[in-house]
Simulated scan of single mutants.
Amino acid sequence: MTTASLIGNLCLGSAPDSWGIWFPQDEHQTPYARFLDELAEAGYKWLEIGPYGYLPTDPKVLAEEVGKRGLQVSGGTTFGALHRPGEWAEMLAHTRKIAELTAAAGAHHLVFIPTMYRDEKTGALTESPELTAPQWASFGSRASELGKILLDEYDVRLCLHPHADSHIQTQAEIERYLNESDSRYANLCLDTGHVAYGRGDNIDLIRRYGERIGYVHIKQMDPAILDQVHAENLSFGEAVKRGVCVEPPAGVPNPAEIVTELSTLDARLFVIVEQDLYPCAPEVPLPIAVRTREYLGSCGLSGTTRPGASA
């Protein structure tokens, strides 16, 4: 593929997930210093913070560790259960800490991942995969309330991330979330791989809900393993172990088509590489990260300029 012209409204970055990082601490994960070293070596300039506690949570230490490698932070990451009113206070307090760190790092986006209804390591169900009508109402209103707090107090925008084994997984669930939340405060982190995992249509979402897309994770899934997921009712953890997340351009959706469609939006967006690799050998991520950056660069994605903080 010949090198494409760089697309001005899109900025490429990566995340700890692409180094097999799912947890703040885990014996199977590479130390954060090696992740940062290899991220810079791979040619990326922007990174997402990842699970709170993996990278330093002291803003000064984080700034030093990131800055001395020529890196910058694109956004923060957190999990939460917006459909459980009894957990609101605790979740809000935790989210505030992450928003504070995100803002201190100079970033303006918080990727919010709904709590999964399966245990991440065992795959066992921890609650019903379906929300009730009252839970849906709580989800939409709480997302809007949280988004307003983050924007008003931290200048950080809430971008909810559809995720496998969560209640925002299928396209119908994504659309219901968007329709039941306030577009001023609650928007979408379009994760192309998780949309494909839930049998959704990324291009359709971009075309119909482009104004709600505030941030992007670019990811690919192996269609053969997706068929196994649906045939065998596999957990996402098991699917990852089988290799459902693949290096572009080997899977679905087509990254070049996604980049082309995103380039039509009237918004400046971070496009963050994620390839779920947990657990993986320490030597695995770096060569993949280099090849992925080079491939996405050939699609027109660059990491040299900073998008604005518009929703």
Rank of each mutant, 00 (worst) to 15 (best):
L110G: 14
F112S: 05
F112P: 10
P114W: 08
M116D: 05
M116C: 09
Y117S: 09
R118L: 13
R118K: 15
T122Q: 14
L125M: 12
L125T: 05
L125H: 12
S128D: 11
P129V: 02
A133C: 06
P134A: 01
P134F: 02
Q135H: 02
F139A: 00
F139D: 00
S141V: 06
S141Y: 03
L146G: 02
G147R: 13
K148G: 06
K148F: 05
I149S: 11
L150I: 05
L150E: 02
L151T: 06
D152N: 14
L158P: 10
H161M: 05
D165R: 11
H167Y: 08
T170I: 01
E173H: 02
I174K: 07
R176M: 03
Y177W: 01
L178W: 06
L178C: 07
L178S: 05
E180Q: 14
S181E: 04
D182K: 09
N187D: 01
N187I: 01
C189P: 10
L190Q: 05
L190T: 01
D191L: 05
H194P: 00
G200P: 11
G200Q: 03
G200V: 00
D201G: 08
D204L: 10
R208E: 15
G210M: 08
G210L: 06
E211F: 02
K219T: 05
Q220M: 12
Q220F: 10
P223Y: 08
